[in-house]
Structure formats: structure tokens, C-alpha cells
Amino acid sequence: MDVILLSAKTPKKVVLRFLKQESMLAVSGAAVLLVIMVALLGPLIMPHDPISVSLTEKVQTPSFQYPFGTDPLGRCILSRVIQGTRTSLTAAVVIVSISGIGGVLLGLLAGYKGGGVDSLIMRLVDVLLAFPSIILAMALIVSMGPGLESVIVALTLVHWTGYARLVRAEVLTLKQAEFVEGARALGNSSSRILFKYILPNVLAPVLVMASLDIAHIILSMASLSFLGLGAQPPEAEWGAMINQGREFIRTAPYVTLFPGLALMFSILAFSLLGDSLRDYFDPRLRDKVIE
């Protein structure tokens, strides 16, 4: 009578319980999944060609044919928003993967080796962090010429520093942990300790950071494109689209509204995912068990 097993663990029940306990994670995960699906299925679900100009149909209000209306060059806004998802997400994923992997590796190296290697890497991080990141990106873009490739290079150069710092701090704590010391006493080599013992334990915060970073990068890219430094016409990109609709904001608000909403939705989805992942990975918040 002391233990009441209310139900056995069937897969359906496990899923239901997960949805109930981690509703935030489930909702934000679904939203992120939606964004990714839109990006992947883009060409299949676009009603029109996102870049073909049709001056006879410019700035039309939303209709059955053009659910989101058309822009000043007569292009279907829905198709362009979908194409914009592809642009933003691809660029964000490329930036986060490169800066994430690079940052993690450099952070591991700095934290584990210490000494001169550590000083060198961390001073470089300090120097990069001393510039406001968007200004640094702008400077790089100006010297490389505007365009998506420049934005990707510029943001990658800025973003790896966050991962390096985070991982280095985690490594410094983990290095002292008894199970790492034990692994050393057992006779593990340095590289094995680094990748088998330390890396898996820093991945959770890195994943959280990556999710938050994607949101941040999508916004940075939109800002740069809005300023005319990122995606160049006729490429579909949310920031550039908002810029285009600026002068029509009184007469045709839908030209800016829909890319703006898409931007907001994706940023919110990735930010929420990051926050709920952080809660999910924190064992103190996960199961509260009293000793």
C-alpha cells in the first residue's frame, strides 16, 4: 500500500506525460519544427515564384490568389516569406554550426590545456567581444562587399567566442570533478578524457546556447539586410522585405506585416526552445526528489 503504481509505462502514456510535464518544450519544439518544415518544403508549398516580377499586379491586397498580397514589384508575399524562411534558417544554421563547433573545440582546448594556449585563445575572444558585434559585422561586410556570404562570414567570426567562453568555463569546473580525476587515475589519455568525459557534459548548455543563438542570428541578419548590407535584391529575405515595404506602410501595411510576423514567430520559437531546453537539462528543475 505504500507504493501505488498508477499506471504502467506504455509508449503512449510516456508521450502524454512528457507533453504534460514539458508543455513549454513541446510547444516551442513544435513551433521550431514548423519553421524547419516550411524551410525544407519551401519550393513545394510556394504558390508562386518568389522572384518573378509582375508589374501589373504590384501592391495588391491579400486575396485568394495572393493570400498575403503582393509587394511593390508584384511578387507574391507568401512565397517570398517562405523563401525568406529558407534564406534565414540556412544562414543561421550554417553560422551556428561553424561557430559552434569551432567555439566548442577552442573552448575545450583552452580550458583543458590552460597556460599559454588558454591565454592566447581567450585574449582573442576578449578582443572580438570588445567590439559591438553588429558594428564588427558591418565593418567586415563593408570591406568584403555586401551580400549573404559576407553576413555569414561576419557573424560566424563574432559568434564562436560565446561558445568558446562557455565551454572553457565548464571545462575548468569539470576538470576538477572527481570522475574526471578518476578517469585520469584509471589511465585514460588526455584526448579520451576530453571527448568521452568532458564533452558530453558540456553539450547541454551548448545546445541551449545554440538555440538562443539561432534566434539572435536571424534577427541580426534581418537587421543587416534592413540596412541594405545583407541579402541583395532580388533575393527574398525578411529584413530586406520589411525595408522594401517601409514607404507603403500606411497604404499597404501587409507588405511589412507578414515578413515581420514571420521574423517574430521564428525568433520567439527558437528563444522559447532555448529557454525550455535550459530548464529541461537542469536536473534540479526536472525531477524534484526528496532524499
Binding site: 505504500d2 501505488i4 503504481l5 498508477l6 499506471s7 525531477d287 526528489v289
Partner: peptide
């Protein structure tokens, strides 16, 4: 008692 997930644990009886 504590309810932990689906089990009830009686810590003081």
C-alpha cells in the same frame, strides 16, 4: 507522502 511522477512515496509512516 510525496508524489513523484506517478508514484506515491511514503517517507514518514
Amino acid at each position: 507522502c510525496f508524489q513523484i511522477q506517478e508514484t506515491v512515496v511514503k517517507a514518514v509512516d
